[in-house]
Write a protein that binds this DNA or RNA. Structure first.
Length: 376
RNA sequence: GGGAAGAUACCGAAGCGGUCAAACGGGGCAGACUGUAAAUCUGUUGGCUCAGCCUUCGUAGGUUCGAAUCCUGCUCUUCCCA
């Protein structure tokens, strides 16, 4: 994997870059649609490519390991073949599930023992088998197995958690060294910077991950309960230390405003369930603000879903029709909303990239931030 | 024509003398959702000059300190027998 830093915006730390993987190029800043179980929920590959213009999507180690399992995954020839997405893929390591599965898992030095949310069966994740599983899935970018520290963790816990993540990181790299890619293309491991809301821990973490000279670095453990301003300041702390010539991936973030604020602070890559999940739940993100399609106000609004939208669903269907579908729980409603939201997110980061290259990012961002949170 | 059961808030449906403006479900209205245990979850849903008051449990009366709950007439619905 290669990263070329193309341009840094004036008056901002925002960057435009180009990642090259064996499955193609990724223009940064980029948003990566989340496809947890091997599919971006409700969206065909054709729509993902032609309409949403996704350049890279996510998969999840935990979910794919449980189902369909690695036997099927390897027999399929890896996730690219299995889900027929031939562009870049990134897999999360299962680290987030260590956090989100909360009450049905047990954390030890070795790894995490957890119960399947599907059938309650017991399993163990460790840095080693997370790497092995991610080898079997075959994503272009794979993530370190970490503990995603809760946002409200006290200093002592956050410090111990960070140290554990550090020891796990070494084991991840060791495991990668003694294994090889299974499908003939390169896989890059991104370490994850933890440290919770404590600047000195974040600083330490950002310094320590660099010993591995990775192809890119991730900032994890944010947007997990802490104040949003705290998240921004942690990004600033970490990005001041991470190397400028490597992509920086802010995990799990966020709202359109979060994306622009993070881009402004030098983040290159994002993923978040928000456009897909909120879309399924009837919420649309647009350039002018947020629309809850369940609201009565759209009942007889026969104008296009989003006149400014870049996807065909924005112009093909009316707001009144979309509201009807959402209210009626028709699956098409969720699909339209998901396609719209993802297309909007991809437009947003694509436009940010253009504004960065034109040295007009800062004023554009200030203007956008004002309107993006408006409730329409 | 005879008999039986029943009529409860937007709908369905509990309640069967006071703690009932009335359980629960649906629908309606609104909110939440940030490396997906989520096409999920939460709140609210008679009115008002709102710690109180007013109107409401088919309808008209009655019993009672007190009725959605008991009694009588009426109207309507469903089922059974002719």
């Amino acid at each position: 994997m290669d990263f070329k830093l193309e341009h840094t915006a004036s008056g901002s730390k925002a960057r435009a870059g180009l990642i090259t993987t064996d499955h193609g190029k990724i223009e940064t800043p980029i948003f990566m649609p989340v496809g947890t179980a091997g599919s971006v929920k409700g969206v065909h590959v054709k729509e993902l490519k032609d309409d949403i213009k996704a350049q890279i999507i996510l998969g999840n180690t935990y979910h794919l390991y449980l189902r369909p399992g690695m036997d099927v995954m390897e027999a399929a020839g890896g996730l690219h073949k299995f889900n027929s997405w031939d562009k870049p893929i990134l897999t999360d390591s299962g680290g987030f599930q260590v956090f989100s599965l909360g009450d049905i898992r047990k954390l030890t030095e070795e790894g995490v023992r957890f119960q399947s949310h599907i059938d309650g069966s017991y399993h163990m994740f460790s840095p080693e088998n997370s790497m092995n599983i991610q080898r079997s899935i075959g994503a272009d970018i794979i993530m370190a197995f970490d503990e995603c520290t809760p946002g409200d963790a006290d200093y002592d816990y956050a410090k111990k958690s960070l140290e554990l993540t550090g020891r796990w990181l070494e084991r991840c790299f060791n495991q990668l060294e003694i294994t090889t890619p299974k499908y003939g293309h390169q896989q890059s491991l991104f370490p994850i910077v933890q440290g919770c809301v404590y600047p000195d821990l974040r600083t330490l973490a950002a310094q320590q991950v660099q010993q591995y000279n990775a192809d890119g670095y991730a900032i994890g453990g944010l947007a997990v309960g802490e104040e949003i301003e705290v998240m921004y300041s942690m990004i600033e702390v970490v990005n001041a230390i991470l190397p400028i010539n490597k992509p920086r991936y802010l995990m799990g973030v966020g709202t359109p405003v979060n994306l622009l604020e993070a881009i402004d602070r030098g983040v290159d890559m994002f993923d978040c369930v928000m456009p897909t999940r909120n879309g399924r739940n009837g919420m649309l993100f647009t350039k002018k603000g947020i629309m809850n399609m369940r609201n009565k106000k759209w009942e007889s609004d026969f104008t296009p879903v989003d006149p400014d939208g870049t996807s065909y669903v924005d112009h093909q269907y009316s707001r009144a029709y979309l509201r009807h579908l959402v209210i009626s729980k028709e699956m098409l409603g969720a699909q339209i909303a998901t396609i719209h939201n993802l297309a909007f997110y991809l437009w947003l980061v694509g436009e940010a990239r253009q504004q960065i290259k034109n040295d007009s990012f800062k004023p554009w961002k200030e203007q956008m931030v004002k309107q993006l949170s408006t409730r329409l």
